[in-house]
Nucleic acid binder design. Structure first.
Length: 220
DNA sequence: AAGCCAATCAACCGCATGCAG
DNA sequence: GCTGCATGCGGTTGATTGGCT
């Protein structure tokens, strides 16, 4: 397959966005939405490629972006989810409302990774370092056969019995990507309400904290 | 005040995946 | 089933900033 050239070398701007470009992008998306990123810059009159516009919007301009420092709770969630999911930043970001995958990735590499490495260096064997240990303690073992079932245990995953039945008969659980989809569905509340977000936060927070092993102690 | 260096983070690149034709 | 386009994702880069000498 021949890849479409990114940011066709002809005359498209690269590098930092100006305030004016930001304003054009915001105004356009507010007015027309972003159904087609590739066509958007042309329609909006921006000399950028669609990819660049999408990135700028999702990582910086979106109105629901939460700027500023990560709270201790957020740090702990990131650490534990990283243990569970690895470098799947978008999956981690979907559990942290207002945070982007890019932001979390940067935060991981600049703060948490170092701290954890340092901690590992001086590791105490008595501490729980594997999230599966924590989950084992607090979630029935039959839920832990794979990550999909962890989601099934999640309080906001199924809204009612109908959902459960539908899910049981669904072939959607066959592939890893579908599992990921389901995990995202469980907590990605972009179109949901803050109560669900809070439930998500409370769920993970409780799992982690009820382990009796304060991560902040581990990594500080 | 100037230069150097490390940390930070916005942005880019290229691969993977989904989907329509 | 195959092809090609659009988008998502994770790794990486490079400009900027702040601290130190």
């Amino acid at each position: 397959m021949v890849r479409a050239p990114c940011c066709e070398k002809m005359g498209l701007k690269k590098g930092p966005w100006t305030q004016e470009e930001d304003q054009i992008l915001i105004t356009f998306i507010q007015k027309y939405g972003h159904e087609n990123w590739r066509a958007l810059p042309k329609q909006a009159g921006l000399l950028r490629c669609g990819k660049s516009c999408r990135l700028r919007w999702t990582n910086y301009l979106r109105p629901d972006i939460k700027r500023g420092n990560f709270s201790e709770e957020e740090e702990q969630i990131i650490i534990k989810l990283h243990q569970l999911l690895g470098n799947r930043w978008s999956a981690i970001a979907s559990r942290l409302p207002g945070r982007t995958d890019n932001e979390i990735k940067n935060f991981w590499h600049t703060h948490l990774k170092k701290r954890l490495e340092l901690k590992q260096h001086n590791d105490l064997p008595s501490t729980i370092t594997n999230v599966s240990q924590i989950l084992d303690q607090h979630i029935p073992s039959n839920y832990l056969q794979d990550s999909q079932n962890i989601v099934a245990y999640h309080p906001t995953y199924y809204h009612d019995q109908e959902d459960i039945q539908e899910s049981n008969s669904s072939s959607h659980h066959d592939t890893q990507s579908n599992k990921e989809e389901n995990m995202q569905y469980s907590t990605n509340n972009e179109h949901g309400d803050m109560t669900s977000f809070n439930n998500d936060m409370v769920f993970w927070y409780n799992v982690f904290m009820s382990s009796g092993n304060n991560v902040s102690d581990e990594i500080s």
